[in-house]
């Protein structure tokens, strides 16, 4: 049940405050992790496809995705990932402040693996982030990552 190696998480988020807060939360977690941060969709895609400065990036075990971002937003990125045969198996957790029904619906239409609204309260936020990690990286059985 307990994963031996550390896990890689790609955090796609443009707000530095949220990045920091998420990293603080992840840091509290039991599982050691390696977090890569992309500030928008284009950068995230570069990481995933190991392009340019991210040539030596590792394939993430989990993507935490914000929806509202400049340049390429989370919805577009989600669409691209889920259409990409190499990337579509990576679980994508939409982690956003939006409570909009439209956003929820669209995200699932684009085959997000789950949709979570960020709790406003810090303690709850910590619990949620911890749960995400716990669930997706320890509990859920995912296909072993295929070499490209």
């Amino acid at each position: 049940m307990i994963s031996v190696s550390q896990v890689d998480i790609l955090l796609v988020e443009d707000s530095p405050g949220d990045v920091r807060l998420t990293m603080e939360a992840l840091a509290d977690a039991k599982i050691s992790n390696n977090i890569t941060v992309a500030s928008d969709g284009i950068e995230a895609l570069a990481v995933l496809r190991k392009e340019g400065q991210f040539a030596d990036a590792v394939r993430p075990d989990l993507i935490l995705l914000d929806l509202n971002m400049p340049r390429m937003d989370g919805r577009e990125l989600l669409g691209i990932i889920k259409e990409d045969s190499d990337l579509k198996n990576i679980p994508v957790v939409v982690l956003t402040t939006s409570q909009s029904e439209a956003d929820i619906l669209e995200s699932y239409d684009l085959r997000a693996n789950c949709y979570i609204t960020k709790p406003v309260d810090l303690d709850q936020f910590l619990v949620v982030v911890n749960s995400i990690q716990e669930f997706w990286l320890s509990i859920v059985k995912l296909p072993t990552s295929q070499a490209a």
Binding site: G17, L21, V120, D121, L122, D123
Partner: peptide
Amino acid sequence: QEPLRMVSSYTQL
């Protein structure tokens, strides 16, 4: 909501 969440989260932190 957004900035307030920052204020709230970080004051809590």
